[in-house]
Computed example of a mutant assay.
Amino acid sequence: MPTLYLNSQGVDARLNDRRVALSRFDYTNDDVDAFTVPIFDIDRVVVIGTPRVSMQLLHKFMYANIPVYFLSAHGRWVSSMVPNSNGSALRRLRQYDAARSATLAVMIARQLVYAKIRNMRRVLQRLAANREQSQDVEQMDACNSLLGYAQKVMDADTVAAIRGYEGIASACYFRRLGAFFPEDLPFTSRSRRPPRDAANAILSWTYTIVGAEIDAEIRCAGLDPCLGFLHDISYGRPSLALDLVEPLRAPLCDLLALNLLNHKLLKKEHFENHADDGGVYLKSDSRKIFFCEYEQYMERFFAESKGGSRVTFRRVIRNMVNAISQTVESNQEPQFFMMP
């Protein structure tokens, strides 16, 4: 089990020797569901909402070098606990120096957004090919526009200009992406806080889960997740983690969301409206469906390029974090994931 998900308020997790003892009250059958998971089978833990997790178990996760991610009940990023990485203080000092360098910031931001736009274009091409829509006017216009924006990004000489092209390209991409959502769960425009429909709910949820994995990988590499290059540095914002989410939004998050909705793994009844903020969210008892599919996506092997080595998306995340490390230590221009 690569990831242990502790989901919902009724879950109780405690340490039992070298195993995690899990229990949850089953109100339907008036019974308690209980089972255990070996610690050595767990690579990471995701805590959603407010399940009961003993301090002894959290300590065990840290001693076993298992990162723990904390999300709100609505799937918003809260924080993480990762094994001690204070030995990389020199790397963080170099990262701080790199963040002050306009030249390095532009170089990194340029490559991030270029990879993001190329991936958005490739996703649209793949979706259109599956539906025999590659020659549709709207499809060709969107792909041609994205190619143009990618070229403009490579010529940009300020982070502000790069952000501008990224925003325009994303708007173009989402206008076309809406054509590939199911009719009963349509996507009309991007809404974030809160998500206004099921399509946006599953997109935001997936972005958050992937962002949590990236944040932990950054910390384990001895880097500061709050010190980014594309996103503004702001109190409490994991700017570097947000940076590295960008190239993976389309090829990982968006395709996963579309797969879940188009194959009816998630339906309208799996979502609920919340009166507190008017948002639409994935129901607590529906998250198991998401996580089963998510784990398959993250662990599935694929070739990064024609004839290239086979990787998983978790390996891709590690490679991108390593690319940042190499850049801050040697000023080497980074290369980020581009969908084959």
Results as ranks from 00 to 15, higher is better:
R121Y: 03
R121W: 00
R121I: 03
R121G: 02
R121L: 02
R121S: 02
R122C: 00
R122N: 04
R122I: 00
R122Y: 01
R122F: 00
R122T: 05
V123M: 02
V123D: 02
V123A: 00
L124K: 00
L124C: 00
L124D: 04
Q125I: 01
Q125H: 14
Q125A: 13
R126K: 07
R126A: 06
R126T: 12
R126E: 11
R126G: 05
R126C: 06
L127T: 01
L127I: 00
L127A: 05
L127E: 12
L127R: 11
A128I: 02
A128W: 03
A128Y: 02
A128E: 09
A128Q: 06
A129M: 13
N130Q: 14
N130G: 12
N130Y: 05
N130K: 14
N130M: 07
R131I: 05
R131G: 03
R131Y: 04
R131A: 07
E132D: 15
E132R: 14
E132G: 11
Q133H: 10
Q133R: 15
Q133Y: 09
Q133V: 10
Q133E: 11
S134E: 15
S134C: 01
S134M: 12
S134N: 07
S134V: 12
Q135Y: 12
Q135H: 15
Q135K: 14
Q135P: 03
D136W: 15
D136N: 15
D136M: 13
D136K: 03
D136P: 02
V137S: 11
V137Y: 11
V137C: 09
V137R: 10
V137Q: 12
E138W: 02
E138K: 01
Q139N: 14
Q139G: 08
Q139W: 00
M140N: 09
M140Q: 13
M140T: 15
M140C: 09
M140R: 14
M140W: 03
D141P: 02
D141F: 08
D141K: 10
D141N: 10
A142E: 06
A142T: 13
A142L: 06
A142V: 07
C143D: 06
C143I: 12
C143V: 04
C143M: 13
C143G: 04
C143L: 08
C143N: 03
N144E: 12
N144C: 08
N144R: 11
S145F: 11
S145N: 08
S145D: 07
S145A: 13
S145P: 01
S145H: 08
S145T: 10
S145Q: 12
L146T: 03
L146Y: 02
L146C: 02
L146D: 05
L146S: 01
L146M: 06
L146K: 04
L147K: 10
L147I: 03
G148F: 01
G148T: 05
G148R: 07
G148Y: 02
G148S: 03
G148E: 06
Y149I: 07
Y149E: 04
Y149V: 05
Y149L: 11
Y149A: 04
A150L: 04
A150V: 04
A150P: 07
A150E: 08
